[in-house]
Nucleic acid binder design. Structure first.
Length: 437
RNA sequence: GCCCUGGUAGUGUAGACGGCCUAUCAUGCAGGACUGUCACUCCUGUGACUCGGGUUCAAAUCCCGACCAGGGCGCCA
């Protein structure tokens, strides 16, 4: 490795020390016989100052001719200087250009001239050089780390289920077909069936940071065709309340960790993150219908909450001081076949969603663990029982009561950071039209 | 899948009741002046109407189609 210091490690206290820094030329300001070079690295920006009288002609010429965004490494004496940003600057003795950046740049990484999201995504590497864009992904990394740490602490086993599957696992969303030698196969829409099967092994509690592939032709700021989710499943639960408790603890752990460790990034994004208070409100679906009706929005029982209804509910809840809240006891009819009915009437279910400011970020439920009931429900959904052979087999020989959920990471990030488009929360997003970069 | 809107230099924009557009401004880039910049400043230059068809004496501007993009709904994480 090249021995160098990050900009964040430097301060005016190091006055007189010879330092090596490396990074990209953020800006160059030529003032005749004085040149300022602002070098950007992962953590920030450091100023190189080149007074014509005090640096070698060679170094001065290199600086003068360097193009914006070129990669350089510079060695020089750090000098305490009131006039310099941060109170110090480096007078370079040597500047080495590793890679000269071509011009014109596809977009302006200093952000002086804005660029459309489409332009930015086409030149994502350039775009990510902007500190506030990179901040999103530092936070994303922290959020996943926090989730992992919390779940490991709670003795969850991290697993990997197949991404290539043979048939439609859950029905509902469309799958991407792929060529698999002489067979047809699909990209998995979620680990749902696999994580449930594992509940029959004694693993008790598992989670996966999973990629979901959804072939829906949706075209919104809220949907993608490839997403990342934290998928959990746990066995020996009393009912879905055990899952709700896990979720609120997990969310609080994740947000707390971000708030504590990403202060700089949160500031860069101009956000203020508050840690949600436990317990999160649980509100039953039928009660939601009542509240909506009072607000002038009528939905009939058995209808899923429309986007309008969800947003309206978000407003109502906000007035009452709830940012995170669970909608529980959904009608069985609008939930997947593996959802546990609330009782023998089979009208309500033990399914729930976690809403964050009027938008759904988690969906989960207690699942059916009884083989016969499961088969009945598959039939009731007009699905073919023979398509579920391997899955059903796991329920024949002893399956404990269990439940779980899937949490959309991008959605969480988007709402937490107030991003205007879900694509902002993915390095290289995949939507209906975008397959590259 | 349905509905709405839009495509102008590398980037972001102005112009659109057809002519006064040899197309605005900013930024960038090139050259020049400048020893304390921090969106440095100033001077000079540079570079664009998505494509195809139509209407018209005349199209960036109106019409049709394609492609691309933005947004909403549905679906969901």
């Amino acid at each position: 490795m090249i021995k160098r210091r990050y900009s964040s490690e430097l301060s005016s206290e190091m006055d007189g020390k010879v330092i090596t820094v490396a990074g990209w030329v953020n800006e160059k300001r030529k003032m005749g016989k004085l040149i300022f070079l602002l070098i950007r690295d992962r953590d920030g920006i450091v100023q190189l100052t080149l007074p014509g009288k005090f640096v070698s002609k060679e170094v001065f010429e290199t600086a003068k001719n360097i193009s914006k965004e070129s990669v350089v490494v510079a060695r020089g004496k750090l000098q305490k200087m009131e006039k310099a940003p941060g109170g110090f600057e480096i007078i370079p003795e040597e500047i080495k250009v590793f890679a000269r950046a071509e011009s014109p740049l596809p977009l302006d990484p200093t952000g002086k001239v804005p660029a459309n999201l489409d332009t930015r995504l086409d030149s994502r590497v350039m775009d990510l050089r902007k500190p506030e864009i990179m901040a999103i992904f530092k936070i994303r990394s922290q959020i996943l780390k926090a989730a992992r740490e919390y779940l490991y602490r709670k003795s969850f086993l991290e697993i990997h289920s197949p991404r290539i599957i043979s048939t439609a696992s859950e029905g509902g969303t469309e799958l991407f077909p792929i060529a698999y030698f002489e067979k047809e196969a699909f990209l998995a829409q979620s680990p749902q069936l696999y994580k449930q099967m594992l509940m029959g092994t004694g693993m008790d509690a598992v989670f996966e940071v999973a990629t979901y592939f959804r072939a829906e032709e949706h075209d919104t700021i809220w949907h993608l065709n490839e997403i990342t989710a934290i998928d959990c499943e746990m066995a020996f639960i009393e009912d879905e309340e055990d899952i709700l408790t896990l979720i609120e603890n997990l969310i609080v752990a994740m947000v707390t960790e971000v708030k504590e460790n990403c202060q700089k990034e949160i500031e860069l994004l101009g956000r203020d993150i508050s840690i949600p208070e436990k317990p999160f409100l649980r509100i039953e679906y039928s009660r939601v219908l009542e509240l909506l009706e009072e607000a002038g929005l009528r939905l009939s029982f058995g209808e899923d909450l429309t986007t309008e209804a969800e947003k309206k509910l978000g407003e109502i809840m906000k007035e009452k001081g709830h940012v995170f809240y669970f909608v529980t006891k959904y009608p069985l009819s609008i939930k997947p076949f593996y959802t546990m009915p609330e009782n023998s009437e089979q009208k309500l279910s033990r399914a729930f969603d976690l809403e964050f400011s009027g938008r759904e970020i988690i969906s989960g439920s207690q699942r059916i663990h009884n083989y016969d009931l499961l088969v009945d429900r598959i039939k009731a959904k007009d699905m073919r029982v023979e398509n579920f052979g391997a899955y059903l087999k796991a329920f024949k020989y002893g399956m404990p009561p269990h439940g779980g959920f899937g949490m959309g990471i991008e959605r969480l990030l988007m709402l937490l950071l107030n991003l205007s488009n879900i694509r902002e929360a993915v390095l290289f997003p995949r939507d209906r039209y975008r397959l590259r970069p």
